[in-house]
């Protein structure tokens, strides 16, 4: 009798195993946490300016959002205007005068492009805005020359791009 009972138990367990489903509760818990974190992180305005991985921007408490304009990036070795290489940083450090010819020519070209576009489309105006993205280890000597050259090329509204401190 007891033997039969035991057999019945085995059968019952086997039958029950068929109904087993995946236990998803813990997975859903993880997903909910992830979802909350990602929704918290989402921002209404996307990043308009990109910078390369080898450019370490300094961290600052400034809170103004960048606009799309001419960007001058100074990495540890190269100087770029809108992603095009113009000059090496070493040359800028070594030069004596404040004005850098290559950067000046590059900026004038950018200005010419904007002026040409503004002839075709009156919505585009040349406002003299430029964003400087400089690596945090760059000496002030270089920054000074960049700002001076921008000023000479009539780019008067200069912004320094930094990483936002939370």
């Amino acid at each position: 009798m007891s033997d039969n009972y035991a057999k019945g138990g085995i059968f019952k367990r086997a039958r029950r195993r068929k109904h087993l489903t995946l236990r998803l509760t813990s997975l859903i818990d993880v997903f909910i946490i992830l979802l909350v974190f990602l929704i918290k992180n989402i921002s209404a305005r996307p990043e308009v300016t990109l910078f390369s991985k080898n450019l370490q921007l300094p961290i600052s408490t400034a809170g103004k959002t960048p606009k799309i304009t001419t960007t001058i990036s100074a990495t540890e070795h190269l100087l770029l205007i809108n992603g095009k290489i113009v000059e090496s940083i070493q040359d800028i450090i070594e030069q004596k005068e404040l004005l850098n010819e290559n950067l000046y020519d590059g900026l004038l070209e950018e200005k010419k492009k904007t002026l040409f576009l503004s002839e075709q489309n009156p919505d585009i105006i040349f406002s003299g805005e430029a964003i400087i993205q400089a690596d945090k280890n760059i000496p002030y000597k270089v920054i000074k020359k960049l700002i001076y050259t921008c000023g000479q090329a009539e780019f008067g509204e200069i912004s320094l791009q930094v990483l936002r401190k939370e």
Partner: peptide, 24 residues
């Protein structure tokens, strides 16, 4: 569906700018 979408659009590094005005 939601998680990959949010992962792609998430911005982890936010930048801002400091304005400088040059005499012109």
């Amino acid at each position: 569906i939601l998680i990959p979408f949010l992962l792609i659009t998430a911005v982890f590094v936010q930048t801002s700018v400091i304005d400088l005005s040059l005499p012109s």
